[in-house]
Amino acid sequence: MITQLRLELLKLVRSKGFYLSFAALSAFVMLMLWGFYSYAQKKTNGLATDQFKYTYESKSYFNGLTFTLYSLMFAFSLVIPIFVAMTAGGQIAGERRTGTLRMICIRPISRASLVVSKFLVVAIHTYLLLAFFIGLNLLVGLLFVGWGNLELYPGPLDLVDAPGQILRDDALWRFCYASLSGTWALLVVAAIAMLLSVIFRNPVTAVAATIAVYLMLYIVGRIEFFVDLRPFFFTTDMDFWRDVLKPEVPWADLGHYAATCGAYIFGLLLTAVIIFERKDITT
């Protein structure tokens, strides 16, 4: 199992997709920096301050931690799951397409350990992606936007019910926790992609199907028509990762949704293993 894991890690590190994911996230950080910077300029100058008597958007509000928070929130919902699905969706179906799956399976390792080791590699990649993204945002935020406390207000980002604040050092720890809770949440997407990678022969189909399912539920969950269905979507449970960024962490909520995500992850992975063990590999 350890050898298998080492081999899979080697494969991951040597793949172009691995570096592409980091490059794409870096580009997203630059895009966010432009958007955040121009927005901050607009909101703290000229018309914006003339139009309304007050704003909480002071110079101290726009700092590196706020920048990281916004960037992470947006990327977590729309960008990072795509790269997780790409990595996970290509694991089994990719081997099949390149014709190496049959050879791997005749080695003296169980199919279950093959699936699990591949999933562990996806988990490592997911954590690295998140940690890199958070670290880069903090660095860029510190260099280009400035430093300060993390101020939170109800409304945008739907994070808190009352205005609150997390002090700088505590906020840095919270981002560390977010890399862990975020990884756990994203592993649900990875587990779906893994299952579809076992089912489909083509990795493109597995990746596309995973992204389609994720985006469909994510968008449908935000339309009021489907408010009654929202609690049954895994995308709703995945949202728990943000709880560590609240001034008072709701541990019971966090535990509940983390456990629900765990059920998805292990349930889907178990299904993938069972299907893969019964699969006739002809290529």
Binding site: E248, P250, W251, A252, D253, G255, H256, Y257, A258, A259, T260, C261, G262, A263, I265, F266
Partner: peptide, 13 residues
């Protein structure tokens, strides 16, 4: 995980 999800109910805080 399933047991955990049922035992730890949301909204406790």
């Amino acid at each position: 995980s399933l047991v955990g999800a049922f035992v730890v109910g949301p909204g406790g805080e």
